[in-house]
Simulated scan of single mutants.
Amino acid sequence: MLEGVDRVVGLHLYSLMPAGQVGVRPGPSMAAADAFTLHLQGRGAHAAMPHEGVDTVLMAAHIVVALQSLVSRETDPVKTAVVTIATVQAGEGAHNIIPETAVLKGTLRTFEPELRERLMRRIAELAQGIAAAMGGSAWVEWKPGSPAVVNDPVLVERFQQVAKEVVGEEGVLEVPPVMGGDDMAEFLNRRPGVYFWLGAGSPSPEQNRPHHHPGFWIDDERALPLGVELLVRTVLDFLH
């Protein structure tokens, strides 16, 4: 797919940055983001007789809390990782039935491949251990995402010079890394390049909303032409 390609460049619109500004950083910029589904198996019972069952709701609660210890107690504090449980499903809506199954869905976000691999293994081990200790079982399904987005430091410096010619020195910001993921990493994992943030928000911060917010809005009339100019100028610079 990248035969004959020496360098890559891409952009991501950013609604919380005013249109006319550009953000970029050398090295790790966005995290690897892997989705997982934990399946819990217990034994259903009447709510009045919990001793007859294996409560997957209680099992899920213990697992959700314990997963946070993988970051707070098993990960070097100077390294970065996020484990999030975003969905908990159990039962069919009854008030008096202990469900025999539960499902947890979440994401793991990391920058370092070794930490990513270790936490993927530990999430499964922790869930299975807690489930077994409570008389049930657990298994995990992974939907691996892209690796971390890592910008080439030399090309970032060249891009910054190009961007300053377009938006001025004050408009080019060095931004901190974020834990969101992006499949631009697949290109940057194979070729050196730059992935930058293109401001697309309002000059008034109170009007801006983050991505995935129901009030999300971008100033596409200002941002998109600027994005095209930045991409074209950067490609021409990389060709020299």
Rank of each mutant, 00 (worst) to 15 (best):
E3F: 03
V5Y: 15
V5Q: 11
V9N: 08
L11D: 08
M17Q: 09
G20W: 10
R25H: 10
P26E: 07
A32S: 15
D34H: 14
A35H: 13
G42V: 05
H46I: 02
D55Q: 08
L70T: 07
S72W: 11
S72E: 10
T80R: 14
T87Q: 07
T87K: 04
V88N: 03
Q89I: 01
A90W: 03
G93C: 00
A94I: 01
H95F: 13
N96V: 07
I97C: 04
V103N: 03
G106I: 08
L108I: 12
P113N: 09
R122W: 06
I130V: 06
A132S: 11
M134Y: 03
A138L: 05
W139C: 05
V140T: 11
E141T: 05
K143G: 02
K143T: 08
G145R: 01
P147Y: 12
D152K: 05
V156W: 02
V156P: 04
E157T: 11
F159C: 00
Q160D: 00
Q161F: 00
E165V: 02
V166S: 05
G168S: 02
G168F: 02
E169S: 12
M184H: 09
A185E: 01
A185W: 00
E186S: 04
R190L: 15
G193I: 05
P203Y: 04
P203N: 06
P205K: 09
R209D: 02
P210R: 10
P214T: 13
P214W: 13
F216T: 10
D220M: 13
E221K: 11
V235C: 14
L239F: 00
